[in-house]
């Protein structure tokens, strides 16, 4: 859900006439990196639907998906400290 999607730089969407407008919008929105949930909110589509569309784009190599690593789930102390400091500074 918080996996980051990034699109290929300067994708040649014209080469894929079978793609729907939602696919094209996704490539545009993803840009350099946007989490799946944000894409769903921007497109006003269900997360499940966005996943299917992303699957289509992924198979054509138009987007890359960066799955959060195990380490992200158990972030180290430096990350937690950065979060606490960042929150205090807000």
């Amino acid at each position: 859900m918080v996996a980051y999607v990034s699109s290929k730089p300067d994708p040649d969407l014209a080469a894929y006439p079978e793609l729907h407008p939602e696919h094209r919008l996704l490539v545009e929105l993803a840009g350099r990196g946007t989490p799946v949930v944000e894409l769903a909110a921007d497109l006003d589509l269900a997360v499940g639907v966005v996943r299917v569309l992303l699957g289509d784009l992924l198979s054509r190599g138009l987007v890359a998906v960066h799955q959060p690593s195990r380490a992200t789930y158990l972030p180290d102390n430096d990350i937690l400290k950065a979060v606490v400091d960042g929150l205090r500074a807000l």
Binding site: M1, V2, A3, Y4, V5, S6, P9, R32, G33, P35, V36, R51, L54, G55, L58, A64, V65, H66, Q67, P68, T72, P75, I79, V83
Partner: peptide
């Protein structure tokens, strides 16, 4: 999220870490 796979293709930019609460 487990529907998509990590393809390991990173291009220059660091991908941010997203923490979920």
């Amino acid at each position: 999220m487990d529907s998509v796979r990590y393809d390991g293709e990173r291009r220059g930019n660091r991908v941010p870490i997203a923490l979920k609460i």
